[in-house]
Write a protein that binds this DNA or RNA. Sequence first.
RNA 1: GCCCUCGUAGCUCAUCUGGAUAGAGCACCAGAUUCCUAAUCUGGGGGUAACAGGUUCGAGUCCUGUCGAGGGCACCA
Length: 554
Amino acid sequence: MKHFVRKLINSALDRAKNNGDLELSVMPEIVVEKPKEEKFGDFSTSLAMGLAKSERRKPYEVAEILSSHLQSSEENIASVKIAGPGFLNLTMKPIFFLERLVKVAEQGDQYGSSNAGQGKKVLLEFVSANPTGPLHVGHGRGAAVGDMLGRLLDKAGYDVSTEYYINDVGNQMNTLGRSTWARYLELQGKVNEFSADYYQGDYIKDIARDIINKHGNEFLNKTEDQVLPFFREYALGSVLDGIKKDLSDFDVSFDRWFSEKNLYDQKLVDTSVSWLRQEKHVYDKDGAVWLKSSKFNDEKDRVLIKQSGEKTYFCSDIAYHKNKIDRGFEWIVDLWGADHHGYVPRMKSALKAMGYDESVFKVMLIQFVSLKRGGEKVSMSTRSGEFETLADVIKDVGLDATRFFFLMRSSDTHLDFDLELAKKESADNPVFYIQYAHARICSIFRKATENGIKLLDSADIDLSPLKNEEEFIMIKKILTFGETIEKSAELLEVHRIAFYLQDLVGTFHRYYSRNRIVSDDHALSSARLFLMNCLRITIRNGLSVMGVSAPDRM
RNA sequence: GCCCUCGUAGCUCAUCUGGAUAGAGCACCAGAUUCCUAAUCUGGGGGUAACAGGUUCGAGUCCUGUCGAGGGCACCA
């Protein structure tokens, strides 16, 4: 809708220029907004104020010139008014909105989709939790946000792939293996000390028990060195299966699970290090290999290969991100926990060292979830074993409510997730407000069928009986769905959809309480039913982008 | 100590990247159902946007400083 208005203004500018009314040495960017207040019309632009300086005229005069050129040749415009210091307020004729509403029904499931992203190849990497334990609530936020971003970018016309990076290399894998080995011995009645550094959670016992069931005591009299590879691999596989199940229960799927170990096996890490060496971006010092990251805006140089000969996590991460770009992705979006923010300049410096443009890489920092239980903070450390798993929360609060809870806030602010509150308030959760609207509309359709009123095709419908002001408020809101999707995708801000839906559905609930859709007036009923269908499509498409269900009955 | 993110109603958060009188939900108070789902609707109180400066036609939004919260400053991942 805004695109159309922007075009109108653009052509008015052209006419003003051709007429010599305005100089327009530089064509300004046209910003079209929806005024906060209904009385200011349907669209507004502060263009005249922006132009005033370069035109060396008063904002009001510029607004007057624009106004005259806008009004002269557009049949969709009902009025153009100048307000305040020079706002141009446009009011459109009803037909403008009704014509567009008809298209909503035609597009159905596709309504809100666009090619704004122009098929740009995007790689979304998210969750990527270390495979050392089940996913907790904090991971859930990343999962929900990442999954929704995938759906959102797809709908907005980007070519999206999603990926989970498995950190299956490093000391943590040995710790995982040793923890399992220790539990194994313990369960076999062999006394041993369970180190405080080991993973404390009960899931380790479950894995150990599983090993006993399958392999009995065959490892009992062996040394740690002999058994560690087996325990490490077994525990990794088991934890990873658990993570995959948790995510699939959360309705989150990945196009690819990318193993860090695989990077090493394919020599990709070695390749990128030698390439960097060739380009003279690395040097040797104190027996270690360093990247000259300080030359690329990082605060200091970083170690790639330790004295011990082991490669750092950073080192393989460089290879991983290089690989992402090599696979042809034009936009690399990583969702990281907020605690990794110090790592951002480091990664950016590495990409710059490799000669890539900084703009291809974007990190979204997902702020922490403070888990609370009745106002008291709950500690969430995998190692200590004190954490609420994502699976538990979904079980308690429900899939839809859990997803919605994570998605209704801007992801760069802290999120307080009070378990007691979430459980207790589940009936008041805004997700039900939205789902209820959908169920109500479905109920209207059941009633309409009873009364023999059919939903008409776009081609046959006569929307002229829609005259109510509340109807137009709703229609206008429905029609901003597409631009909400586009904006949300472009800014990678998922919460906008949740707010949009709450707002949209609010207009419906108010309308519903004051108006009957199915009545004796056949023409009016048909028109209203058609509107309800468009509304239902919008709600359904909005919820679907969030990965939340749209029930027919509640 | 240095760096990053944040600070908006009692609580949880919006405010369309600088626009018009800062808005929702929860909680609290008072009301609404002979009729398509009351998980709904109507009305009410509640604000120095942490604080102090600056930039301009115009600032919650941009800049500087102060205070407060969280996080980061490894040859860990």
